[in-house]
Design a protein around this nucleic acid. Structure first.
Lengths: 253, 253
DNA sequence: TCGGACAGCTGGTCAAGACAAGCTTACCAG
DNA sequence: CTGGTAAGCTTGTCTTGACCAGCTGTCCGA
């Protein structure tokens, strides 16, 4: 039952009570909540009010509702740890890229689809690649799947000058991937920089990555920098926030 | 106007149209959207339907609504890049920790408040610190502010055995911070590991960090590991996803 | 000229009711 | 025993109507 005089909106009181019951374990992960109509009686409010409360919990990622079935406490997804700094030349030489090797090791059947296009650099791309705005760039747009399910989106951008006449402008970059082709062309990679952030997905991303509501995405922008200090490639990656975690490691000194 | 026969719910059509107008620039960052009542006439739907559409956009982080004023396109926040791997001994020796030095360099007036308590390790903590579940740990719960605004929450946990009798169990850990005290006690730090993820904030976190709706948080768990391989400390940090970005760098080989 | 009251905007909350659509179960006909 | 169907649950969508609460500009009185 909600307190009408407290000044706190009814739907917030309902949401707070359900949230508390979930975290206290009254409703365990996977459990079904009482139906919306039952909750209207429990709290003595109308159905839209109950729905407002459930919408809050859904936006927080606490519950999911299934049409025709009910509302359920969202069980925590199993988190895959992705270790970075695994881009050494030896590792690259053995396979086509970190993703395919990693997926195979985990027992998934990996697959990727690639689209290649050419664009002009916008301000963000120009900054990361140290180019002038409007400079021609090669864009490799990849969708990565494990057992058919999309697990990662990646958009790789390189100055066109570095890719002309190489397999980087082909769908199949060949053994060792794009980085190997870059080094063959004389662009030795010196170091990597990654920028990690988070945001809510666009509806397209949510559909592709099959994200439940209230699940953010992790964005990673990796820049490969040559031994001469020139940026060679930038790679924008998008991961489901509830399924992936990135790990970085470095020596204390 | 919405297409009633398309099968696509009206509020989704409204949301999609507004979303498109925002990304196309019809409504620029900071602009006010037409009022809810105006939108009911534009699309010929009821107000709850308009509000459902706006709720979607708000959960995506695209707009914010201000009671009594209107609904506005959310301008992108200025992103602070936080470079990791800046925990070298020399840097630590100079100040009290990375946060205070960093904030001062940016012209903010930093402040932190600390609460210390003692707990038993749960399974997650036990795993990260290589302890038995239930082992006694020291917990340092910190709120970090810049110019009075909360910018980061951090919970640091260490095995109690490493902190007994040291300033780590005090509010002020002294020059060089907790890491310096650990090394004085003979626990030399060998390397750091950070696990980065994202999730939606709890209501408490959203209030503390003054997050708009539809803004996720970035979670960072840093583990300091001794030269002997024993984990010394784990630090759970929480950052506003729309204001911070983490940067990592490593050599290509 | 200045300050405060108020009108008229804005979004926030809530109700009651209706129908659509998806899922599960039970039952019945073949 | 099998397969289809219908009943009865669930959430999803949408409307009309009402009132509350915060903000802002205007206008009037001091």
């Amino acid at each position: 039952m909600v307190d009408r005089r407290s000044g706190v909106p009814a739907f917030r009181q309902v949401a707070a009570d359900l949230r508390q019951k979930i975290s206290a374990g009254n409703y365990a992960p996977g459990d079904q909540l009482p139906s919306e109509r039952e909750l209207t009686e429990v709290y003595d409010v109308s159905r839209p009010t109950v729905r407002d409360a459930i919408n809050m919990l859904r936006a927080e990622g606490l519950v999911t509702s299934e049409h025709g079935r009910g509302v359920f406490v969202r069980p925590p997804a199993t988190i895959q740890r992705i270790a970075r700094a695994r881009l050494s030349r030896e590792a690259r030489a053995k396979n086509k890229g970190a993703f395919l090797a990693d997926a195979a090791a985990r027992g998934f059947t990996p697959s990727t689809s690639v689209k290649i296009r050419f664009e002009e650099a916008d301000s963000r791309v120009a900054e990361h690649l140290a180019l002038a705005e409007g400079a021609e760039i090669t864009v490799r747009d990849r969708v990565m799947r494990a057992d058919g399910l999309v697990v990662q989106l990646a958009v790789s951008r390189l100055p066109r000058d570095f890719t002309r006449g190489t397999a980087i402008e082909e769908v199949d970059t060949g053994k060792g991937g794009a980085y190997a082709r870059l080094e063959e062309a004389g662009h030795q990679i010196g170091r990597f920089v990654e920028h990690v952030g988070a945001r809510m997905p666009t509806p397209d991303e949510a559909t592709l990555l099959q994200l439940a509501e209230g699940v953010p995405i992790v964005t990673v922008t990796r820049v490969a920098i040559g031994v001469d200090g020139r940026p060679l490639e930038m790679n924008d990656m998008v991961l489901a926030g509830d399924r992936y975690e990135l790990s970085y490691e470095w020596a204390a000194d």
